[in-house]
Design a protein around this nucleic acid. Structure first.
Length: 203
DNA sequence: CGGGCGATACCCT
DNA sequence: GGGTATCGCCCGA
């Protein structure tokens, strides 16, 4: 017989739509320790995020209103906004809040969990496994995310990517830090990461 | 292993 | 035409 007081392993739970239907700066720290899961089996634990908060956030792509590029972020919560930047990199966000708000959470780093072999093949330049997903454009390369995934639904799972919980809670007292790579609204402390994680993009 | 800098194309002014 | 929610090369430790 097993050990009666050992909790039964719980199957991964897909995060429901209401999880995302909140302001991005509240969703962001709750995404820490959740898992980005691809249909082909690649997965990684979310260890670093940033919130971008629409019309009140001068650093957000959506600050100046809807354009062809940012249209997905003005759409329904729980979808994935993927954008192209610096002429060569893809980055992905989870759309948050209400439709029309233009809010989202940028996924900045993962701790690789499954599919490491495929991730190394997708990122042959990584010198160490900690470089596979430690950066917003690195994790999209490792997970196989491009503009083809812009607009997919993270809740229905039909788009090939979901965010799930395996029961590991987010940090109890997450500390906000300045966001990376922006020149405006640097005073908003909307970056969060898992303290002590070796997979965060910048310490 | 970390700092400095060039690459690169797309969107927005 | 300017600036970019970045990365990897190169070089020195």
């Amino acid at each position: 017989m097993g050990y009666p007081h050992t909790p039964a392993p719980r199957p991964n739970q897909v995060l429901p739509r209401p999880f995302y239907q909140r302001p991005a700066h509240l969703v962001a720290p709750d995404l820490l320790n959740k898992i980005l899961l691809a249909a082909d089996g690649l997965s990684g634990r979310i260890v670093e995020v940033e919130a971008y908060c629409g019309a009140v956030d001068a650093a957000a792509h959506t600050f100046r209103g809807k354009t062809p590029r940012n249209a997905t972020m003005f759409g329904p919560a729980g979808h994935m906004y993927v954008y192209f930047t610096y002429g060569m990199h893809w980055c992905c966000n989870a759309v948050c809040a209400d439709e029309g708000d233009g809010q989202g959470v940028l996924l900045r780093a993962l701790e690789p969990m499954t599919g490491l072999y495929a991730m190394r093949a997708a990122r042959p330049r990584a010198r160490r496994d900690r470089e596979l997903c430690s950066g917003p454009a690195r994790l999209t390369q490792a997970m196989g995310i491009t503009g083809a995934q812009d607009g997919i639904d993270l809740v229905s799972a039909r788009g090939g990517f979901t965010i799930v919980s395996d029961g590991v809670p987010p940090p109890t007292n997450p500390v906000g830090h300045a966001r990376v790579g922006i020149s405006r609204a640097q005073d908003r402390l909307w970056r969060w990461y898992v303290e002590g994680s070796e997979h965060v993009s910048r310490r």
